[in-house]
Each structure stands twice: as structure tokens, then as C-alpha cells.
Design a binder for these strands. Structure first.
Lengths: 248, 248
DNA sequence: CGTTAATTTGAAAATTTTCAACGTGCGTGG
DNA sequence: CCACGCACGTTGAAAATTTTCAAATTAACG
């Protein structure tokens, strides 16, 4: 089966695949002599491709951390499982994102990364990076740039009233998708209501109500996990509307 | 005046100085041939020392980013000024912390860093790092480790009811101070109520009330900006108290 | 000292959580 | 094939928390 198969137009359409060109790992990959998919979809020597099916982990917290992963297709979630067994969603991982950056400083991964859509990830083994680093002078610098960019505070940080946090999440996802050349106007949330609530530090019922409210006022369209952004903007004032202007 | 002057026992006692040994930048410094303060307080070739007085910036967002800074003494805040002129507190910078990591990937700094206590910072010029990097093989690896650690999500992320966010902040500060060999049981908040409220995504009045509540129930002691942690623990249940248990 | 900024406090309004119930979709087993 | 159980999402209404608005105190500073 062809990796570059176009996504179906159906509801469960999977994100990507994206072009290597728009991947955070691109520069590092190039310097390692790993290039793929860009011209004529002719694949050369890519590290390794990992297909991860929904619900399955790309890796788990505590597992030996010896590789980075760049997401080429699909969607995953980063999950922190606390000592008491409660799981917290740390964020969503989209095509072009790189996970496993802690591998450079820790023996083991710090969180689970689990697919929420069929995902395909490029694996970059650390030992290989080490070898190449000894050869290619520029490689260290590229890795340093990658990490330096990753230290920037994520846009996901929930702030303000729940309504703003929900719209903020949706707009952040849309923005991230478009940055990768994907469609940010319509996509699947991937996360369940429970997980969204956790991510936004609120309750499942509140998320549900807020999404329904946005739906009712036609800012978004919600059908299950699929959302379309209709007239959603950052400063969306919101619920100030007299729905029924009844002349008597 | 002697840099290793001990802090006075007064209210405004300044944090640190800490030992180079417990600084995040230590490994990088050593590989650059910069060592100071550790044995016999004999200072060798340190990059440069920057003294920053309260209210003054170590650097500003938009300024040319050509140096890292490690905090040796005092306390600073990272401040993001939005396009609309509203300022948001991103976090507190304590002795041993390193700021300016975005310098590796951006032309200019991404946020202001402003002292809230008299601070002394070690400056590490990027050009110098570049030169040394060409010589010392291990240096790149050390920088990569530094950055990789910095990608770990900060403990500061406010979650749950305000009470938990306040105690979480206090405990996080205490924990970070102790990690550096400083006193985590009593310290100055550095930030104003307004800034704390901003950091915790709540209102100034709510922060005030919560701190007073914690004070009243003797979990902490608050005197202005100085706080002492008395019996504050992570799972501090809190306000569930029937003040009057009448035995009728 | 007088004045201004920062913090605290009170009380009503608004938001969010909690508790409960209901509906739907889906897989299992009768 | 259909009933059942179950996870998930939605909805309603009361309780709790948080915000807002106002005012009183306190701290800071020239």
C-alpha cells in the first residue's frame, strides 16, 4: 500500500501526510543524509517508519529513550500518568511535530505518546545521531536549534474563562495545522471530551456545553469529534445574543 | 564589595548566591573553561557578571539575543508584553536557572526578564560558545542536554481550583529553591499580587483571599511579600473546618 | 505628613462544578 | 437479529467557586 495515499473525504479523514519540508525535524534529517518523500515521493534512507494505530503507544513513559520521532501523518496525544494512576493530557501531537526530545537528557521517556488517529512517525535513533554528529559539524547546531525552538512556551496554555480556553484550543490546533500545510478549518479533535476537559483544566460537562454553545451560535460546527471552524476568531465575544427577538 | 557576602537575616534577604555546582549552566561553563566561585570563592574567568537592580531588565523582548544568562543570586521574572500592551507573567527565575535559551534559534529574545530582587547573573556570550564549541567536542552535547532538560514541562502550570494553584506555586518555588541548596521554607514572593494573579490565571482579589485563608488556617505565614511555609503540603485539603464544634 | 499605589475585605453577580438523568452508539451474547 | 450493558456525550438544576464592583486599610514614597 502506498504511503502517499490521499486521505478519504470521510469523517475520519486522517491528517497528512505532510511534506518533509514542513517538518520540524527536516533540517536534522537532511544533515543525517535522511531524505524522503519530498520530490517524486521517492523514499531514500529514512530512519525507520513506525505506524501506530489508534489507541496504541508510539512509546510509553519509562521506556528506554533512544530515539526521536517526527510525526508524518495522523494525530497523537501526550499523556502523563501520575503516581496515583490518574492520567493527564499534556497536549496533542500533529504532523510535523517532534516528540521524544527528552531523550537527549534522560534515560527514559517522560510521558506516554499515544495515537488517536492512525499515525506514521519517522524514527531517528539517537546512536545514529551521535555517529553522524561526529562527522557532520552542522548537525549539533541543527539539533540545538530544534531544541531551542521547543523551549518556547506552547500556545496551548489554557487561560481565562472556559469559553476562551475552548476557542483558544481550537484556534491553536487550526493554526498549527495550517502551518504544516494542512486544513485548519475542519479537523478531528482526536481527544474525547474527557481528555479535552483535562487539557483545559475544566469539567467534561463544561466542555460539552461550551462546544454546543459555539455550535448553536454558529461559530463552529460540531459533529462528534469532527469540528469545522466557521466564524471563530481569537476575540470571539460570544454568548451576547438575544436569540429570540419576538415582536410580542 | 565582596560578591560572596552573606545575605542579611532581614525581610528583604536576597536569594543566594548559590554554588556554581548547583547551577543548570554548570556543565557548559566548565567545558568553556569558565569556572568560578566554587572552591575558595576564588573567581577565575567567568563570562561576565551582570548586576541587575529590582525593576531593571536583564534583557528585553526584541533585543538582540546573543547571550545566555545563569542566575547566581536574586530573583527575576519573565514577562511577555502582548501587542496590546498587556503584560503577562510567564514565570519566576531563581538562582541556578538559565534564561535566554531562545538565543540559539532566534535573532531576538522572546520576553522581558526583569529583576524583582537585586540579582547577579552570569553572562555567556553565544559567539564565545561557538568558538569553544569548535574546540571542545563535548560542549555541543552539554548544550543539547541543557536544552533537552528545559523542554520538560514546568511544574508551575496552574491547575485545579485557585487554592490548589496558589499552594502549588508556593510548593513549586520552595522545591526549586531547595534543589539549589537555598531555604525553601521561607522566601520572598518577588511578584506582586497582581502578578501572581496573572501567573495563576485568576484575579488579584482571589489570590489575596486565598493567601489570607492559608494564613488564617496556619498553613503559611504571610507578611507582605515574605512567606513562610508552615504545614503546607501538596494535598492540603483546606477550608473544610467547622470552626465551632458545639457539644450541645 | 500627604498622596498614591497596593492589598484586603465585603457583598452581589456570573461562571463553573456537581449531581442526576437521559440519549446514543456499539459490541456482546442470547 | 435483538436485548443488554456500557462508555460517551448532552442536558438540567442546585451548589460552590470565582469574578466583579465598591470601599476600607495598609504600605510606600517623596
Amino acid at each position: 500500500m502506498n504511503l502517499s495515499t490521499r486521505q478519504s473525504a470521510a469523517d475520519d479523514s486522517v491528517l497528512g501526510p505532510i511534506a518533509c519540508r514542513s517538518c520540524d525535524l527536516n533540517e536534522v534529517c537532511r544533515l543525517c543524509g535522511l531524505m524522503a518523500f519530498d520530490r517524486g515521493q521517492g523514499r531514500k534512507a529514512v530512519g525507520a517508519l513506525r505506524a501506530v494505530r489508534p489507541g496504541a503507544p508510539l512509546y510509553r513513559a519509562g521506556a528506554r529513550a533512544d530515539a526521536l520521532y517526527a510525526v508524518r501523518q495522523g494525530m497523537l496525544k501526550r499523556v502523563q500518568v501520575s503516581a496515583e494512576g490518574e492520567e493527564h493530557i499534556l497536549g496533542v501531537v500533529l504532523p510535523g511535530d517532534v516528540v521524544g526530545l527528552e531523550a537527549f537528557s534522560m534515560e527514559t521517556y517522560a510521558s506516554d505518546v499515544i495515537a488517536v488517529q492512525p499515525a506514521i512517525c519517522c524514527e531517528l535513533a539517537l546512536p545514529m545521531l551521535g555517529e553522524e554528529g561526529a562527522r557532520v559539524r552542522e548537525l549539533s547546531a541543527a539539533i540545538i536549534r530544534l531544541l531551542s525552538r521547543a523551549t518556547a512556551p506552547g500556545v496551548d496554555h489554557a487561560r481565562g474563562p472556559v469559553r476562551a480556553r475552548v476557542t483558544g484550543l481550537l484556534l491553536a490546533l487550526a493554526s498549527r495545522l495550517e502551518r504544516r500545510g494542512l486544513d485548519g478549518r475542519e479537523f478531528s479533535l482526536g481527544l474525547s471530551r474527557r481528555e479535552i476537559a483535562d487539557l483545559l483544566d475544566t469539567r467534561i460537562e463544561t466542555v460539552s456545553r461550551m462546544m454546543q454553545a459555539l455550535h448553536r451560535e454558529k461559530s463552529i460546527r460540531v459533529r462528534g469529534n469532527q469540528v469545522s471552524l466557521l466564524k471563530l476568531a481569537a476575540g470571539n465575544e460570544g454568548p451576547a445574543q438575544d436569540e429570540a427577538p419576538p415582536a410580542t
